[in-house]
Design a protein around this nucleic acid. Structure first.
Lengths: 110, 110
DNA sequence: TCAATATATCAATAATTCTTGAATTATGGA
DNA sequence: TCCATAATTCAAGAATTATTGATATATTGA
């Protein structure tokens, strides 16, 4: 992931509704969620949500699949991976003791 | 780290100059770098850089120490840790196979 | 083909953010 | 104390972004 792509991803997540959407979709996992259900769940109008989903999709943080009339959205774990990898890329400028605590914190609860 | 704090951190990093600053300071590690040197290194005017450093500092992504006339900035690894921990918090909504590849990618090069 | 449903797009306004020149504050040295 | 240096703060204009009502597109079923 290049720098401008990373900036798009950070920008997409740096807004309350979109961060909520992303985390909701992360929780939904492989089930994903229909655009309308996302809007209703988060109490956001349909077209506002559509615009926000488009921002997340352009940034590679979510992807979508049409299912008949419904468009189902999913968190894009590849995008997430690229973002975190970039942010940690140079974490060890010769001082492992600085970055190790950061890595230790990122422990999956699964 | 709570949600609004996370949004501040994401917003702070979602801009080219500030992302460059953060990564520069990550590379500098414990040495940090004087505000003026950061501005000169990145080719940004001194007051523009000051404003950007203030955004990063408010977001908890950098911290500073005065050394005589100079103010030296450092990446804040605690802030970084909080941000990444929040983003990964719910990565395992019952499907470890989704999040494991994300975690595998975040491997420190040290 | 027509109506209903789900979602996206458009255009306009409101709000926020970025950059910059100018002014200000803080420190150290002569 | 006065000057030079390092950095911050202020105010204003330009640019970007968010939200919304209205409209358009796509799909399904009658």
């Amino acid at each position: 992931m290049d720098k401008s792509h990373v900036i798009d991803a950070l920008h997409a997540l740096a807004q309350e509704t979109r961060l909520d959407v992303f985390r909701l979709l992360v929780k939904q996992g492989e089930a994903g969620m229909a655009a309308g259900d996302i809007a209703e769940t988060l109490g956001v109008r349909q077209n506002t949500m559509s615009a926000n989903l488009a921002v997340l999709a352009r940034a590679g943080m979510v992807r979508s699949e049409r299912e008949g009339r419904v468009i189902r959205y999913f968190a894009d774990f590849d995008g997430m991976r690229g973002l975190l990898a970039f942010l940690m890329e140079d974490c060890c400028g010769g001082n492992p003791q600085l970055c190790q605590p950061v890595l230790d914190e990122i422990v999956c609860a699964c």
